[in-house]
Amino acid sequence: RKEMTAACTPRRRIINLTSVLSLQEEINEQGHEVLREMLHNHSFVGCVNPQWALAQHQTKLYLLNTTKLSEELFYQILIYDFANFGVLRLSEPAPLFDLAMLALDSPESGWTEEDGPKEGLAEYIVEFLKKKAEMLADYFSLEIDEEGNLIGLPLLIDNYVPPLEGLPIFILRLATEVNWDEEKECFESLSKECAMFYSIRKQYISEESTLSGQQSEVPGSIPNSWKWTVEHIVYKALRSHILPPKHFTEDGNILQLANLPDLYKVFERC
């Protein structure tokens, strides 16, 4: 597991931080080997919608929660590849102030007048994250320049770009939802926020969305749709870069829909 690298990086740093090793061990302890084997050997059937997909393993048909699986995938990559990410360069710098204002204007932020003026909160978020810029760049390849612009994001899987519609809320939550006081809790909560931002979430995906850094293989055609990215990038990574937690067998994120021999018997009677 320590050699797990989802995106190509030129050289690998050895990380011996106790906090990170502890988080890696927790993933191992909570892992479910049968689910790992199923995901490793599954045959992708198709997307139901951005949140759900169908896959077959041996004779069984499964309904998989793409949102939760991708979130767990990105969390584990962030923990196992800690401080070893490439950088996704933004085509132009994104001012943190503008991103924070967009987030505060969104109902998702939960902002009320009692929280104070949005401009003041946005300025605080910019200054707060600028103070964390060195650590964010060093460990997470999340790059913020001296003017308070976001200029780079971590490359977690080759050819995958997170849904940038979720970027404003991500920046807001970096400042408000991460435990910045304790090292282990900081790395864990920061990785979880980043994983949620990178995950496939239906509120940020339309039929026209593209999450891939590449064009489709047909010359002159439109960019790959999110469905292509889910199948050929995300579920491909799920084959080798995730140890599913045991609770996925109990919380409805992986559901067995049918045993195909039983279905064949039904059709034979028709």
Rank of each mutant, 00 (worst) to 15 (best):
2 K>Y: 10
2 K>C: 15
5 T>Y: 05
5 T>N: 06
5 T>Q: 05
6 A>R: 04
7 A>C: 13
7 A>T: 06
8 C>P: 06
8 C>D: 12
9 T>A: 11
10 P>N: 08
11 R>I: 10
11 R>K: 06
12 R>F: 14
14 I>T: 13
16 N>L: 10
17 L>S: 07
17 L>V: 05
18 T>C: 06
18 T>V: 06
18 T>H: 12
19 S>G: 05
19 S>R: 03
20 V>T: 04
20 V>G: 02
23 L>I: 13
23 L>E: 00
26 E>F: 05
26 E>W: 04
27 I>S: 04
27 I>H: 01
28 N>Q: 13
28 N>T: 09
29 E>D: 13
29 E>R: 08
30 Q>C: 11
31 G>V: 07
31 G>L: 07
32 H>F: 09
32 H>D: 15
33 E>T: 12
34 V>P: 09
35 L>Q: 04
36 R>G: 09
37 E>R: 07
37 E>T: 10
37 E>N: 09
38 M>E: 00
39 L>D: 00
40 H>K: 10
42 H>I: 10
44 F>Y: 04
45 V>L: 14
45 V>G: 04
45 V>N: 03
49 N>I: 03
51 Q>G: 06
52 W>F: 13
53 A>M: 00
55 A>F: 07
56 Q>D: 09
56 Q>P: 01
57 H>R: 04
57 H>C: 08
57 H>L: 05
58 Q>T: 12
58 Q>C: 15
59 T>I: 04
60 K>Y: 15
61 L>Y: 06
61 L>R: 03
63 L>W: 05
64 L>F: 13
66 T>M: 00
66 T>H: 00
66 T>S: 09
67 T>W: 03
68 K>G: 11
68 K>D: 05
69 L>D: 00
72 E>F: 05
72 E>P: 00
77 I>T: 06
77 I>M: 04
79 I>Y: 00
80 Y>V: 13
84 N>F: 02
84 N>A: 03
84 N>K: 03
85 F>H: 06
85 F>V: 05
86 G>M: 12
88 L>Q: 15
88 L>S: 11
89 R>W: 11
89 R>C: 08
90 L>M: 09
90 L>F: 15
90 L>D: 02
90 L>G: 00
91 S>N: 11
91 S>M: 07
93 P>E: 09
93 P>V: 12
93 P>W: 02
94 A>K: 14
95 P>C: 13
95 P>F: 08
96 L>N: 01
96 L>Q: 00
97 F>Q: 08
97 F>L: 14
98 D>K: 10
98 D>M: 08
100 A>W: 00
101 M>K: 15
101 M>A: 05
102 L>N: 11
104 L>T: 04
105 D>Y: 07
110 G>F: 12
110 G>D: 14
110 G>N: 14
111 W>M: 11
112 T>V: 14
113 E>P: 13
113 E>L: 12
114 E>H: 11
115 D>W: 08
115 D>I: 08
115 D>G: 09
116 G>K: 07
117 P>T: 09
118 K>N: 05
118 K>G: 05
118 K>C: 07
118 K>P: 11
120 G>A: 06
120 G>Y: 14
122 A>F: 02
122 A>T: 05
122 A>I: 05
122 A>L: 02
124 Y>V: 14
124 Y>N: 11
125 I>M: 06
126 V>N: 13
126 V>E: 08
127 E>Y: 08
128 F>Y: 09
129 L>R: 01
129 L>I: 09
130 K>R: 12
130 K>I: 09
131 K>C: 10
131 K>F: 12
131 K>R: 10
132 K>I: 02
132 K>N: 07
134 E>C: 09
135 M>S: 03
135 M>R: 03
136 L>W: 02
136 L>P: 00
140 F>R: 01
140 F>K: 02
143 E>M: 06
143 E>A: 07
144 I>Y: 01
146 E>G: 12
146 E>W: 14
148 G>V: 04
149 N>V: 11
149 N>C: 08
150 L>H: 03
152 G>E: 04
154 P>M: 01
154 P>I: 01
155 L>T: 13
156 L>A: 00
156 L>Q: 00
157 I>C: 04
157 I>N: 02
158 D>M: 13
159 N>S: 14
159 N>A: 08
160 Y>K: 01
160 Y>F: 08
162 P>R: 01
163 P>G: 04
165 E>V: 09
166 G>I: 01
167 L>I: 06
167 L>T: 03
167 L>K: 00
167 L>Q: 00
168 P>V: 02
170 F>R: 02
171 I>E: 02
172 L>M: 10
172 L>A: 10
173 R>S: 04
173 R>P: 01
174 L>R: 00
174 L>F: 00
178 V>P: 04
179 N>T: 14
179 N>G: 07
179 N>D: 11
179 N>F: 08
181 D>T: 08
182 E>G: 08
183 E>R: 02
184 K>P: 04
184 K>H: 07
184 K>Y: 10
185 E>Y: 09
188 E>A: 11
190 L>Y: 04
190 L>E: 00
190 L>R: 02
191 S>M: 08
191 S>R: 01
194 C>T: 12
196 M>G: 10
197 F>G: 00
197 F>E: 01
198 Y>A: 02
199 S>I: 03
200 I>E: 01
200 I>Y: 06
200 I>H: 03
200 I>P: 04
201 R>N: 06
201 R>P: 03
204 Y>L: 07
206 S>T: 15
206 S>D: 15
210 T>C: 09
211 L>C: 11
211 L>M: 13
211 L>N: 14
211 L>A: 10
211 L>S: 13
212 S>G: 12
212 S>H: 14
213 G>W: 12
213 G>S: 13
214 Q>C: 10
217 E>S: 07
219 P>Q: 12
220 G>Q: 13
220 G>T: 11
221 S>W: 09
222 I>Q: 14
222 I>R: 14
227 K>G: 05
228 W>Y: 12
228 W>S: 06
228 W>V: 06
230 V>L: 05
230 V>H: 00
231 E>R: 05
231 E>D: 03
232 H>N: 13
232 H>W: 04
233 I>R: 10
233 I>W: 02
234 V>W: 00
234 V>Y: 00
234 V>R: 00
236 K>E: 12
236 K>N: 09
237 A>H: 08
237 A>K: 13
237 A>E: 06
238 L>A: 08
238 L>R: 00
239 R>A: 06
239 R>F: 01
240 S>M: 13
241 H>G: 05
244 P>E: 02
244 P>Q: 01
245 P>T: 03
245 P>I: 01
245 P>M: 03
246 K>A: 13
247 H>S: 13
247 H>G: 08
248 F>H: 03
249 T>V: 15
249 T>D: 15
250 E>D: 14
251 D>W: 03
251 D>C: 10
251 D>R: 06
252 G>H: 07
254 I>L: 04
254 I>A: 04
256 Q>F: 11
259 N>T: 10
259 N>V: 06
261 P>W: 05
262 D>H: 15
262 D>N: 08
262 D>V: 06
264 Y>A: 15
265 K>T: 11
265 K>F: 06
266 V>M: 14
266 V>G: 15
266 V>T: 15
266 V>W: 08
267 F>N: 15
267 F>H: 15
269 R>D: 13
269 R>E: 15
270 C>Y: 12
